[in-house]
Design a protein around this nucleic acid. Structure first.
Lengths: 187, 187
DNA sequence: CGCGCGATTGAGTAATTTCAAATCTAGTGG
DNA sequence: CCACTAGATTTGAAATTACTCAATCGCGCG
């Protein structure tokens, strides 16, 4: 059932069966349909999520109604509005299904106790956080250094699967250009 | 001597004198002059750094020679080219002094042993990594959502001290606009 | 005074956005 | 199988924004 979660964790730390059982108790599995919201802007953020299958977008809608995609989350990714999650404040970003999606839900309380009682898992989350930070910094650098067309080609190279799964208008919202401009790149 | 480091750590976890002594043994203090490099693009990254005093820029220089500033690091900040640091690969960014700067240097080996042997410190670094990640995501969102002038005003509001300490051309390199464009905002 | 560095200004150019319209595509029901 | 529709994509043209390059300004310091 949760063997994808186990495999994922064991890429970083090894677990006995008993240990994984203990870890597993901290998660609830939920299924969502395309277009459903896991997190809605303005509301409390109860969980962070491990994506078992499907695809999510982490998105902020600005005053003029335009969407800006901070991140896509696919299989084996962790996602949430982490500021709202850790501070127990209300979300500034939504987390929405782009496909039918199955996730493991993780409350902050469970996160904290698991970290405290189980050093291995704390180390796992430390690794995840470090690499999450690095990934975000690389994205900042790409936004600063490259023009939209170059960013488009980098994305295409790094995540070719996305192009089969997401409409181009969303890729534009991720890259920070209008869909019209993105459309003119492909030629 | 390192009481700034201790105060900083104790904002998140409490330490006895003995514990802090143990922690402290993992750091070397170094002083650098303005314009010196702590990390140079292309070279190995031996340390991550805790800034005791002074100011640094984390910067990438592109093929055309233009600088792009990923981050400023001031007092009480941790900084490095973390991808290169954790993977023991060569740096894609430089870390350079904008002022005379004192840092505590932290090897990867010490980081790893400290995390393993001392759960409290692992928790401290987990918190730092999480908030680092959140900070980077907020920057991404700001780059996507706001135009250069709005980003300028956000920066002015969040870090007014920067404007006393750095030339505007560097703020431009942080905001992702040319210095001429930035100059036209102030009016 | 004169140098050097940073900041500003101006003008022309390039890139991107916006708005509107046209086109394409996949799925639905007849 | 075809027509229809909704959503996605493309195209065009005008307007806006930012960039580049060059020249000028301002200020602190030897």
């Amino acid at each position: 059932m949760n063997h994808k979660l186990r495999t994922h964790i064991e890429e970083i730390v090894t677990l006995t069966d008993d240990e994984f059982d203990y870890v597993q108790e901290n998660f609830i599995t939920k299924k969502f349909k395309k277009h459903q919201f896991l997190i809605q802007e303005g509301e409390q953020v109860k969980y962070s999520y491990f994506v078992v299958s499907g695809l999510l977008k982490l998105v902020h809608t600005d005053d003029s109604g335009k969407q800006h995609i901070v991140s896509f989350a696919m299989e084996n990714w962790w996602e949430s509005d982490y500021l709202a999650y850790f501070n127990q404040s209300s979300a500034t970003m939504s987390l929405e299904c782009l496909e039918d999606t199955e996730v493991c839900c993780f409350t902050l309380k469970n996160y904290q106790t698991l970290c405290k009682e189980f050093q291995k898992m704390q180390y796992f989350f430390l690794q995840k956080a470090n690499y999450g930070h690095i990934g975000s910094q690389r994205r900042i650098l790409s936004l600063l250094t490259s023009n939209a067309q170059e960013r488009y080609e980098q994305l295409l190279k790094e995540y070719p699967a996305l192009f089969q799964r997401v409409p181009k208008s969303l890729l534009a919202a991720y890259l920070g250009v209008s869909r019209e401009t993105l459309s003119r790149f492909s030629q």
